[in-house]
Design a protein around this nucleic acid. Structure first.
Length: 114
DNA sequence: CCTTTGACCAACA
DNA sequence: TTGTTGGCCAAAG
């Protein structure tokens, strides 16, 4: 599995109605210190790959990737459609951050090893 | 091989 | 507490 593929894999596991941060994903794939590359990977993700990239926000809960979507506010409306409140281009991480169980993290770690 | 480019982040003033 | 600074590192050129 390539670096980018690992990022896509983790992204797909973020549950509906939850969000993750770039740094959080970097840590989960075992590469802390590469949050910018996580953003880059999502930005350049293939067209047909149906990825819930709108569930990824920065450490403050700000929708920093909004400009990269097909139309302005697409990220915001997709989140709202899942029941996530968005105020001033931000989400409340205390409420909506995804907290994977230890078992799920192990599952991911094993899948990624390939 | 370099060099540039970021959907970031921790540290510091 | 809010702005700024520099480092970070995989990919693309």
């Amino acid at each position: 599995m390539t670096f980018y593929e690992k990022i896509y894999y983790v992204c797909k596991r973020i549950p509906k109605g939850k969000v993750a941060t770039y740094g959080q994903i970097a840590v989960i794939i075992g590469k802390p210190g590469t949050p910018r590359q996580v953003g880059g990977a999502l930005h350049r993700s293939p067209e047909g790959m149906c990825l819930p990239a709108h569930r990824v926000v920065n450490r403050d809960g700000v929708l920093t990737g909004a400009a990269a979507f097909t139309f302005e506010k697409e990220q915001e409306s997709r989140l709202r459609a899942e029941g996530v409140e968005v105020l001033h281009n931000k989400v409340d991480l205390k409420k909506y951050r995804w907290n994977p169980s230890r078992q799920e993290l192990e599952e991911i770690a094993e899948m990624i090893r390939l």
